[in-house]
């Protein structure tokens, strides 16, 4: 037997694909797949909404609290007064399936959220910012609007979908996944949803006080504070910019013929 030295050609064991092409293909392809799956799931959630009634949801989440809630002491005056205000406002929503509960979260970021089972969470930061009961009433009314349009359940579904998605991508444990309030609310609502909630909220405020004076003053103050805020944060947020919001609210009050003058109640604490 004769040994003949031969050199095989290069690249037999290596795919002839540039690593950057491979990277690009994977990133674009997977993004498309995930977007498709996410849209599909969101669509399925919409379908599921027809089958899960308000009553079922209220029952399921009757005692539920989000994992990451840092509640203030139950003896807090503000908790009592705000719950009272919430009850007064929701009394104008005839045949609501929910018994609304209120919690105050110990967070400095001004925010309010509508969570499953009729749970309204407002942050300390928000309570520090409001200057009259009427301002607070509109914020609460807005959240009640989210319940009426069932945005909170949509957001819950989307939040779960997104959490699962991130868990898969980052390789975290899916089993240990709890529902956090941030999952549900930070993803934001669409502008349309926000406007619809605004409309309902303002109608509740009008029903309660007989006028809508100071309902949107909180946003006007925000506007003047944030005039010079640079783009990126606002850009990422789906919340309507306060400016347009105030305009829309004024138009709405005008259209409905709601009084814009009236007595303003001071905060009760």
């Amino acid at each position: 037997m004769k040994f003949v030295a031969k050199k095989p050609r290069e690249g037999i064991n290596v795919s002839d694909v540039h690593p950057l092409v491979e990277a690009g293909t994977l990133v674009v392809g997977l993004t498309l797949i995930f977007v498709f799956i996410a849209l599909l799931l969101i669509f399925l959630i919409e379908i599921a909404l027809y089958f899960v009634s308000d009553e079922t949801e209220a029952e399921l989440f009757a005692d539920w609290l989000p994992e990451d809630l840092v509640a203030v002491s139950p003896a807090d005056d503000r908790l009592y007064e705000t719950q009272l205000l919430l009850d007064r406002l929701s009394s104008h929503w005839i045949d609501t399936p929910y018994t609304f509960r209120l919690e105050i979260d110990d967070s400095e970021v001004a925010n309010a959220m509508a969570l499953p089972g009729g749970l309204v969470v407002v942050t300390e930061g928000l309570l520090d910012k409001v200057e009259s009961e009427n301002e607070l009433a509109f914020v609460l009314g807005h959240e009640l609007g989210h319940f009426r349009n069932r945005d909170h359940i949509r957001a819950l579904g989307r939040g779960i979908v997104l959490s699962l998605f991130f868990a898969v991508v980052t390789g975290n444990d899916v089993a240990g996944l709890g529902i956090k309030a941030t999952d549900v609310t930070l993803r934001g609502f669409s502008r349309k949803q926000e406007s619809a909630a605004d409309e309902f909220g303002l109608s509740l405020v009008h029903a309660e006080y007989g006028h809508v004076n100071e309902a949107w003053r909180l946003f006007e103050r925000w506007d003047s504070e944030q005039d010079s805020s640079p783009g990126i944060v606002t850009y990422l947020s789906t919340h309507p910019q306060a400016g347009n919001r105030v305009e829309d609210l004024k138009l709405l009050a005008d259209r409905e013929g709601w009084q814009v003058q009236g007595d303003v109640r001071a905060l009760q604490w």
Partner: peptide, 21 residues
């Protein structure tokens, strides 16, 4: 880089082209 691309590949399967060389 290879690790990340291979991780993405691991989601759908196929030749891990960045590991071959």
């Amino acid at each position: 880089f290879k690790r990340v691309i291979a991780g993405l590949r691991g989601l759908i399967g196929g030749r891990i082209k960045t590991y071959e060389p």
